[in-house]
Design a protein around this nucleic acid. Structure first.
Length: 742
DNA sequence: TCGCTTTGATTGTGT
DNA sequence: ATCAAAGCGA
């Protein structure tokens, strides 16, 4: 495509710090891609001298493919080592690559103590949580008083602010932080004993190696041209990494838009982009402020919403495009009809306007909202795909396989050992594990060494020892296999050696078992990307992919399908028709943000991102009532809807459905109880049971699922007073209460 | 001491 | 609904 003057300026500006403010749909990606191509083809810069960092793997992959296509290069299965292509990856992918490379290249330099061995593995959030729970147990801590998740988040925050365990001490100003500081020390010790890095460590350690003069010098000369995308979402370690890498040549181009900063909860700091001019006073600033994608209505409405944010630079996205349709507002009676209305609309457009299914993007705030849509789409036989972030790798069978792979790659991975030592069950219980743990602490041996010498241990009975030897044999067999088999074959070998199929058969229903086997099969398919490599390298690359890439890159069955994802996932995407579902207080903005002004502003930026994903047609939907948290809630309309001036909005004509709900219903008569604290929305109980009231009489014995047995002491049609021996008198509506006669 | 049953928490976004 | 931790029996 032809670039406009601003885009040309961004493209042709190479040898100088450059800040590109690229607003939604300003053809940012095209500009960046052409910029790289221009550097290579016209400026004769060698591709290997260019380093491009993106925020997600999806974006990295897309850019690799686009640039590869433009340059006529086939992309191999190791994305970082494609000849003739720049390094294009995420900060985390780059960090791991640098760390491994540095450990090889500077192996002899004893000044360089990274505190980790070459075969390190990456711990995901749940692994790191396991470690914190492990520590908490050792310290006899009360989970209620010191929730491990909260501790995890504090530690992660500390790392993102570049506090070491030692320097964190100085920031302690309350008891909880004092405890965190203590755990932080132990946590880092365990990580290094397990030869593992968590996500934050990847960045922190990368920065650490760049502080070594020799290493920095090496990377300075290796990557002379640096490009950082989504710069508004960088955190402190990332910011420092960039600063170090660019400090010599300063051929640094950063791209971003503070309005699209939606990751502050991961400690992204958008002042990094706002202060770029201060960091690099001679930087050139290019603003790509023309939107080429959306209609005027959509742009103007999005501008109106984002204007409600106080903490933002005043600016306005504009477009030359036509005014277009108004935004359609769907007010559904409940969450299932919200999905049904949207799916009906998709179907209707498909049939009447010859629109493709793939023109539709359904966005929501939380992953849990996808279910209704999936059901409605399935019911209509419409092909769809859900872009999930975690779901697949969170499954038990996948985690089990992954744990086996991790301990095979890294025998120091105690978290992995603990997970698999008794899966499938080998009658190795908590006692055996704790004995091994003790031995490990006392004698500085690893798990395998202890099990190998288990006969020397007096504290265990002989059947426990037999079980451990059995496990050892399986491990050794697999370890042998891992020397010759690539990772996909190794997965099958694990299933075989552990008799995992039998384990699934015994412990689960037939359907569950088959689903789990299917998942393992799919897992193996992903692994088969690394067939034909050196076995150990294939194992590592697969582990790295699993650790960093969240969504499964699976073969799609259909070409034409509807896409569903969270708004966070949609950044950088576009579609002709976009539906933003669940626009209710408590959902979007999310309940956890409502009492915090800056978090609320981030939610609003999220709304801005969601709205600007749409090209021609934008739908905003809410449900009056929703099944959420395993209960029914009624949330008020999202404030973001109110912030869109009414001239931009047309109502969707589903009045008949709405009228159904307007008659006097249970909900209108029930007095809703406003909840306390942050639960600032209205919550109403909906009958899950519907008892026949006439069967109950005064004096009847009843059973309540929570309160146990009781006696009805008064009864006025539906309203009963019931005496429970343990909890006393309760008033309840006997029609909807979970009670039955006994 | 292990394994099954009950209880209690869990879901906000994701590298 | 689902899963991990705690509770309890063989």
């Amino acid at each position: 495509m032809q670039l406009n003057p601003k885009q040309l300026e961004a493209k042709n500006h190479i040898d100088w710090p450059l800040l590109i403010i690229a607003w939604a749909w300003s053809w940012k990606t095209a500009t960046l891609t052409q910029r790289v191509q221009y550097m290579i083809e016209e400026k004769w810069i060698h591709p290997s001298e260019i380093l491009a960092v993106t925020f997600t793997n999806k974006a990295a992959k897309e850019m690799r493919e686009r640039i590869g296509k433009n340059l006529g290069i086939e992309i191999g299965n190791n994305p970082y080592r494609t000849r003739g292509l720049p390094f294009i990856g995420t900060f985390h992918g780059m960090g791991i690559f640098f760390l491994k490379e540095t450990m090889n290249r500077f192996a002899d330099d004893e000044n360089l103590n990274i505190g980790i061995k070459k075969d390190f593995i990456i711990y995901d959030a749940s692994d790191s949580l396991s470690i914190i729970k492990w520590i908490a147990k050792e310290m006899n801590m009360d989970e209620k008083e010191y929730p491990s998740r909260k501790i995890q988040s504090y530690i992660s925050n500390a790392k993102s602010k570049l506090y070491t365990p030692a320097s964190y001490q100085a920031t302690v100003d309350n008891h909880f932080k004092e405890v965190v500081a203590d755990i932080y020390v132990r946590y880092q010790k365990k990580l290094s004993e397990n030869n593992a890095l968590d996500f934050d460590d990847i960045l922190v350690k990368t920065l650490d190696i760049l502080k070594h003069h020799k290493v920095l010098e090496y990377y300075h000369d290796k990557y002379k041209y640096i490009m950082i995308d989504e710069y508004q979402d960088t955190n402190k370690p990332q910011y420092e990494i960039v600063k170090h890498l660019a400090s010599k040549y300063k051929n640094l181009a950063v791209v971003g838009d503070d309005w699209q900063s939606i990751y502050s909860w991961r400690w992204a700091d958008m002042t990094n982009i706002i202060n770029f001019k201060k960091d690099y006073p001679n930087a050139v600033v290019v603003k790509l402020e023309q939107n080429y994608r959306s209609t005027k209505s959509i742009i103007d409405a999005a501008n109106q919403v984002i204007k409600n944010n106080v903490n933002s630079l005043k600016k306005e996205l504009w477009t030359d495009n036509e005014v277009g349709e108004k935004i359609t507002y769907i007010e559904a009676p409940d969450d299932r009809s919200e999905a049904k209305i949207i799916v009906d609309e998709i179907k209707e457009k498909f049939e009447k306007e010859n629109s493709k299914y793939s023109d539709n993007l359904i966005l929501y705030r939380t992953n849990g909202q996808s279910r209704n849509f999936e059901e409605a789409l399935m019911l209509k036989g419409i092909p769809y795909r859900v872009v999930w972030s975690l779901k697949f790798y969170d499954r038990k069978e996948i985690k089990d396989m992954l744990a086996y792979l991790k301990v095979l790659y890294n025998k120091d991975d105690v978290v992995g050992f603990k997970r698999i030592i008794n899966v499938p069950s080998r009658k190795i219980g908590a006692k055996s594990v704790s004995v091994i743990d003790m031995m490990r602490n006392d004698f500085w041996l690893d798990y395998l060494q202890i099990i190998e010498n288990i006969d020397e241990v007096d504290d265990l009975r002989s059947n426990a020892k037999t079980a451990l030897k059995w496990f050892l044999q399986i491990y050794l067999n697999l370890q042998n296999a891992s020397k010759t088999m690539v990772v996909s074959e190794l997965i099958w070998e694990i299933v075989k050696q552990t008799d995992y199929e039998q384990y699934l058969k015994d412990g689960f229903t037939k359907e569950e078992m088959e689903a789990k086997l299917d998942n393992i099969e799919e897992f193996k398919n992903v692994a088969s990307n690394y067939n034909g490599m050196d076995p150990r390298e294939s194992l590592w690359l697969f582990l790295e992919e699993i650790a960093l890439i969240t969504d499964l890159d699976r073969e799609e069955k259909f070409d034409d399908m509807v896409t569903l994802m969270t708004i966070h996932n949609s950044k950088g995407l576009e579609e002709k028709r976009v539906f933003i579902a669940g626009c209710e207080e408590g959902i979007f903005p999310h309940m956890r943000t409502i009492n915090n002004e800056s978090e609320l502003e981030e939610e609003r930026r999220l709304m801005y991102v969601a709205m600007t994903r749409a090209e021609n047609e934008l739908y905003i939907a809410r449900a009056r009532e929703r099944f959420y948290f395993w209960d029914y809630v009624r949330n008020p309309e999202s404030r973001f809807i109110k912030e869109i001036p009414s001239e931009f909005i047309q109502n969707h004509s589903y009045d008949s459905l709405l009228n159904d709900n307007k008659g006097k219903s249970f909900f209108d008569s029930y007095s809703p109880q406003a909840s306390m604290e942050a639960w600032a929305w209205v919550r109403v109980l909906k009958p899950k049971v519907n008892n026949d009231v006439t069967v109950f009489n005064m004096g009847d014995k009843i059973e309540h699922h929570k309160f146990g047995n009781g006696i009805i002491t008064s009864l006025n049609w539906e309203l009963a007073e019931i005496a429970f021996p343990w909890v006393g008198m309760k008033k309840m509506n006997i029609r909807i209460a979970p009670v039955k006669k006994v």
